[in-house]
Design a protein around this nucleic acid. Structure first.
Lengths: 123, 123
DNA sequence: TTCATATATAAGCATATGCTTATATACTAT
DNA sequence: ATAGTATATAAGCATATGCTTATATATGAA
C-alpha cells in the first residue's frame, strides 16, 4: 500500500511569482504570431511596420498582440519619429528567457513564415 | 535611412519543429492547472486521483487536462490496477524542459494551491 | 493647414477554451 | 453477478481569444 503524504511549508520571505501569473505570461507564448515576434526580438528591436509586413494579419491585429505583450511587461516600446520600435523586456522572467533560448534564429523563423525577404524603410 | 533586409535560406535536411507546433505545445503550459500538474510531474509520477484531490475542479476537468497533455505527447500514462498514473514525456521538447526547470518544486506548488497536505492511497 | 504615413483603439463576430453535470467504461472485491 | 471505486467521454454553457473593419490619434512633410 502506497501513501503519498506531503507536508508543505514554504519560507515566508521568498519572492515566488504566483503560479497563475507565470501561466498568464506563458499563455502569451502559446500563440504562433506572438511566439514568432518574441523569437525575432531576441536578435534586435523591430518596428511595428516590419511586423505588419512579415505577418499575414492586419495592422490592428499586430498592435493588439504587442499591446498584450507590453501589458505583461514582456516587451517595451520605444517611439522614434512616427515609428514605434519594440524590444524584449524579460530580465526578470527566466522561464520566458529559457523558452526563447530554445527558439530558432530570425532566419529560420522568417522562413517558416514564408518570408524570403523583408524590406521596410524606417528613416 | 535604415533599410532592414534579410535574405533567408535554411538548410533542407534540418529537423525544425514547426513554429505553430511549438506554440501549440506552449499553449498547454499557459493554463494554471496544467502548469501546476507538469511542475508536480517533475518530481514523480502522479495518479489521477491525487490530482483530483489537489485541484479544486471536477474529476472530468482533471481528465480533460491530462487528455490534452497526452495528445501532444507531453505526458504518458501508465495503468496499474484501477489507477492511472501520469508521468512527463518531454525528452524531445527542450523548450518545455526549459520552462519546467524554472518552476518551483512540488512543495511550493502545493502551497500555492493551498494544499498543506495530501493523503491519497493507491494500493 | 492639409495630406500622408504609422500606430492604436473600438466594436463586432466566429471559434476556442475550461468548466460543469450526466453518463459510460474499466477494474476490484464480495 | 453485483456493488464500489477510478477514470474517461459526451453534451452544454459562459467566457476568452484572435481576427476583421471602421475610426481615432500621432507624427512628419508639403
Amino acid at each position: 500500500m502506497l501513501i503519498y503524504e506531503v507536508e508543505v511549508e514554504v519560507e515566508g520571505g521568498e519572492v515566488v511569482e504566483e503560479l497563475s501569473n507565470i501561466a498568464d505570461n506563458l499563455k502569451l507564448l502559446g500563440d504562433k504570431t506572438r511566439l514568432a515576434m518574441l523569437s525575432l526580438l531576441k536578435e534586435r528591436e523591430w518596428c511595428v511596420c516590419e511586423f505588419v509586413e512579415i505577418f499575414d494579419i492586419s495592422q490592428p491585429a499586430i498592435s493588439q498582440h504587442l499591446k498584450k505583450l507590453k501589458a505583461q511587461g514582456i516587451v517595451k516600446e520605444n517611439k522614434r519619429g512616427q515609428w514605434v520600435f519594440y524590444s524584449l523586456h524579460i530580465e526578470d522572467k527566466a522561464y520566458i528567457q529559457a523558452v526563447l533560448d530554445q527558439m530558432p534564429d530570425s532566419k529560420t523563423i522568417l522562413s517558416q513564415l514564408n518570408k524570403t525577404q523583408i524590406n521596410v524603410v524606417c528613416e
